[in-house]
Design a protein around this nucleic acid. Structure first.
Length: 414
RNA sequence: CGGGAGAUGUCAGAGCGGUUGAAUGUGCCGGUCUUGAAAACCGGUGAGGGUAACACCUCCGGGGGUUCGAAUCCCCCUCUCCCGGCCA
């Protein structure tokens, strides 16, 4: 959630910043008004309640002194209804405010370039030269079929479309990649965690998936739980509603989880192959930092993900997202796009974001700074998306006969 | 899933319906003492909102109710622990 006091005191700046994310000034004006209404309603209710409390306390005094309380009771009763309605008004004001506030995206960081969509993202640099092929490189689904690595049909049979089954060497490589990623992250100081793949609504609200993006989630109706769309949800919310000692910062976590996404808005996109599935494996990094240290940790996370790709020998480029392409919670995002020779293009394989204090404010993740509690910064990033790495290896390590080499660093895992 | 017990501040653990936001112990911070440390003693120490700072409001698992007034009484839910069933 954005800082409502900031919105109140620096309205024009706020409008300007959120323009990059397509939020109208009318919406923000409405939010500002709701915030003012809440404060007014609270003030009215609280002063009425204060009077009531004082009168109630008198009963104790009167009784001890043996005085009659009948007159006092009449006085209190007279205001009862009024106070109840003031309380109701304050509650309604709060509900109205949060209904809007929770659906407002985060402010983009100053360093985020202007732009409407992914076409205006800025390539920062490339790592590794794509190899040249003396034959026509195939796309991963063709290679998958030739090698019997991915069983798309039976995945659909077991569940529905956009589910698939990895078989044999592919299944082993999936497992090898997970281990390789976790080990690498651990060597950079990230604690490895194994977390629930179902989280409750409060957690999904904490990281920003709810209330706005419920349609993108798989929900277990009977239990009121959601399949996580990314390990960012459980890892970040591990510290929801907690106050972390300053010396424990930064908290660096990594974990492997499957991720589940309805892909509600992407009908027709990437229907072929394993690029976009309802279920995929991912190893995630999450950091909770002191606000002054988040930039530094962000750079480290980008470097780490890039280093993993480099270690695998996968050519990639580092891209700074423009304002229009930023996600809901993100203040700043860098994508790593891996080269897919079969598709002859770069495709996203990792996305590293800082949310500033946006998620921390929602999830109440704070730390002790001296005597004061302060909102932390939260960051997250893939290192890496496992299925897409598998695809990248297939396409980059293919031979003319359709066979696939195993990257050197993975050999000890297979 | 069935039966019993419980949910209070870092933790432990009190709390007749009214000066209890909460005894006491413990932990932590500061001070006295000490060459230093320990011990002892003194003081401070939950969160959110609000304020220039006070005041003030809210929070004793969550929600609702009774009452002038609820941590204390009633109802519902959730969670934890113990017993039984089932089970990786």
């Amino acid at each position: 959630m954005i800082d409502l006091k900031y919105l109140q005191n620096h309205f024009d700046e706020a409008v300007q910043k959120l323009q990059k994310k397509g939020v109208s000034s009318d919406t923000l004006q409405g939010l500002k008004t709701l915030f003012a209404s809440l404060k007014a309603a609270n003030a009215a209710f609280e002063s009425a309640r204060a009077e009531q409390n004082q009168m109630s306390k008198l009963f104790g005094t009167y009784k001890r002194e043996g005085r009659d309380t009948a007159e006092l009771k009449v006085k209190v009763d007279a205001r009862k209804e009024e106070i109840a309605s003031l309380q109701e008004a304050a509650r309604e004001a709060e509900t109205a405010l949060y209904r809007v506030a929770l659906s407002i995206p985060n402010f983009p960081d100053e360093s985020v370039p202007e732009g409407a969509d992914e076409k205006e993202n800025v390539e920062l640099h490339k790592v590794l030269e794509p190899r040249s092929f003396d034959f026509e490189p195939k796309e991963h689904w063709a290679l998958a079929e030739e090698n019997g690595w991915i069983d798309f049909e039976r995945g659909v049979k077991l569940a529905k479309s956009r589910f698939s089954v990895l078989r044999g060497e592919a299944a082993r490589m999936e497992r090898a990649l997970i281990s390789f990623f976790l080990d690498t992250n651990r060597s950079k100081g990230f604690e490895e965690l194994c977390v629930p793949f179902l989280n409750n609504a409060a957690m999904l609200q904490g990281t920003g998936q709810l209330p706005k993006f419920e349609d993108d989630l798989f929900k277990i109706e009977d239990e009121n739980l959601y399949l996580i769309p990314t390990a960012e949800v459980p890892l970040t919310n591990l510290y929801q509603d907690e106050i972390i000692p300053e010396k424990a910062l930064p908290v660096l976590m990594t974990g492997y989880t499957p991720c589940f996404r309805r892909e509600a808005g992407s009908a027709g996109r990437d229907t072929r192959g394993m690029i976009r599935q309802h279920q995929f494996d991912k190893v995630e990094m999450v950091a909770i930092t002191h606000p002054e240290k988040s930039e530094e940790v962000f750079e480290m996370m980008v470097q780490n993900a890039s280093d993993i790709l480099t270690a695998l020998g996968l050519p990639h480029r580092v891209v700074l997202l423009c304002g229009g392409d930023l996600g809901f919670s993100a203040a700043k995002t860098i994508d790593l796009e891996v080269w897919l020779p079969g598709q002859n293009q770069y495709r996203e394989i990792s996305s590293i974001s800082t949310t500033g204090d946006f998620q921390a404010r929602r999830a109440k993740i704070r730390f002790k700074e001296g005597k004061k509690n302060r909102l932390a910064h939260t960051l997250n990033g893939s290192a890496l998306a496992v299925g897409r790495t598998l695809i990248a290896i297939m396409e980059n390590y293919q031979n003319e006969d359709g066979s696939i080499e195993i990257p050197e660093v993975l050999k000890r895992y297979m």
